[in-house]
Amino acid sequence: MSYTIKLAVTLGIVCIIAAFALGGVYEITKGRIAFERERVMKEALQNVLPRAKNIIQTTTPEGKVYFRGFAAEDTSAAPVGYAILAYGKGYSSTIQALVGVEKSGEITGIQILFQQETPGLGAKAEEVLYGETDSWFQRQFKGASGLEVAVDKDGGKIQSITGATITSRAVANSIKSEMEWLKKEGLILSESDRLY
């Protein structure tokens, strides 16, 4: 019996040493991991809201999160644009995209933050062609009217990815529904509002 206890104690000691060693590495890398995560989000926000100098996260009373972009550090002026996360159910994952939009309802850029679609098909939503710096699929959204975003198969202007209509549609439709929410909140204007 005492031998068994000795074994258990030895194993316990090894585990404790391991846990402390990991704790140390965790403390060292923690800041870096958090920084990296924040950097990705910051860059994405800057990408989709190129005109904004200061971007502030806002939560509605219902718990929905969106971002307001201001042209200057001063946040008392009207925001130049809004950014919002859109979640669309694709073929093999929920695609998460960040969309930037101006008050006029014109999309200033989108960036897909997460997707696990089929490599070679749906995953092309993030494909950057050789010699280019941004994704050809996501670039198409720039300048489009947010409330009218749709893939070509649904009569819209967004060229869908060959063989991945579900993915393309998921991105377009999730963006459109977020735009509709922004409009309902009165943050962006629709086509008809702009005429007057």
């Binding site: 590495v25 890398t29 990296e36």
Partner: peptide, 11 residues
């Protein structure tokens, strides 16, 4: 350790 270092430096 690899997991944590990779998450921080090669996300």
């Amino acid at each position: 350790i690899v997991e944590m270092v990779m998450a921080g430096f090669a996300p």
